[in-house]
Amino acid sequence: MEVLNPVQRRIHQAALRLFAEKGVSQVNISDLAQEAGVARGTIYNNVENIEQLFRQVASQLSKEMHLRVSKSFADLQDPAERLANGIRFFIRRTHEEPQWGAFLNRFAMSDSALREMFYSQATTDLLSGLQGGRYRFRQDQLVVVISLVASATLGSMFLVIEGLKTWREAGSDTAELVLRSLGVDEAEARRLATTELPPLPALD
Rank of each mutant, 00 (worst) to 15 (best):
A175W: 05
F54W: 02
Q60H: 15
Q131V: 09
S30V: 14
Q139S: 13
D111R: 02
V184S: 06
V27S: 09
P79E: 11
F103S: 12
A150K: 08
H66T: 13
Q8Y: 04
D204H: 10
S72D: 12
E2W: 11
P98F: 10
T153A: 11
G86H: 11
G133C: 08
L18G: 06
R40F: 01
T195D: 10
S72W: 09
Q56S: 13
Y44L: 13
I50C: 08
A189G: 08
E96T: 08
E81V: 07
P79T: 04
A39Q: 06
F90T: 07
Q139D: 10
F137E: 10
S156L: 03
L104S: 06
D185W: 10
E51I: 03
S70N: 15
L83R: 11
L179R: 09
Y119A: 07
N105D: 07
N5T: 08
V143H: 14
S62K: 03
G101P: 03
D140Q: 13
L148K: 02
R168V: 06
L127Y: 00
L154Q: 00
M65Y: 13
S59C: 03
Q56L: 14
F137Q: 02
I29W: 11
L130T: 10
Q77L: 06
N5M: 05
S172T: 04
T195C: 00
A36K: 07
E21L: 15
V3Y: 09
G132C: 07
E81C: 10
R82L: 01
A113D: 14
T124V: 15
L179N: 02
L130P: 02
G171S: 04
V57F: 00
A102H: 05
G41L: 03
I146H: 00
L16K: 15
M109V: 13
G23C: 12
F73T: 01
A80F: 04
G37F: 05
Q99Y: 14
V7L: 14
L126K: 04
